[in-house]
Amino acid sequence: MEDKENKYLEKYSKNTHVIGRIVSAATLIMLVGAPFLIGSILGAAPNLSAVAMGFISVGLIWTISSVVEFLVYTPMLGSGGGYLAFITGNLINMKIPCAMNAREIAQTKSGTPENEIISTLSIAASSLTTIVVLALGVLMLVPLQPILQSEALQPAFANVVPALFGAMAYQYFRKNIRLAMIPLAIMSLLFVFVPSLISQTSIMIIPSGALTIGLAYLIYKKKGSL
């Protein structure tokens, strides 16, 4: 790579972190500040002891899962995509598959500047789409509500995630179907025998992913690819 390009990328990456940090902090302040501001408009401040109690009962679980999400997803998203995705949320049901799909189409390799750019573009475009869809939806809430909440459409929206993962499964399982069958079989058996874990699927991703990475490493050692 040319020296000029390298310098450009170095600067780009440095600025990404500066901007990423500033906007993360700003969003955080606004998000935590908003309930106080709204509270003052409504005439009642948040009950801080109830918040503390609530945090202990539900928040601790989210804190742990946030740490896991951060560790697992940041390498997938890169720096720009990472900052944006953690600001805009909906990682597992949208941002991660979206970025993976974009990488698949652009055929970039992890850890390259191309990949960083593709995933940033993908996350930004995806986030903007959600913002626009939600804004339009809120604007047209009155006419839209009966349609979207109609009995007939409920099964479709209840199955957004299975539809997404079905399509992604074909896309990824075909890369090495024999490898994919192992975690699929093990996870299916696990959920069949311990159905109480079904509500914990977002955490069960971790052992499933770790197992698959381990198996993939063995294949990689042998073949040099999947």
């Binding site: 390498p75 699927t201 499933s208 490493y217 990689y220």
Partner: peptide, 26 residues
């Protein structure tokens, strides 16, 4: 392929497997 790519694909296969497994278990 670098192992980074392989690991990413594997992680995703694991993720999708967990979800599909949960539907089967359900």
């Amino acid at each position: 392929q670098g192992f980074g790519d392989v690991a990413m694909v594997a992680m995703f296969i694991g993720l999708v497997s967990a979800y599909i497994g949960s539907y089967i278990g359900g």
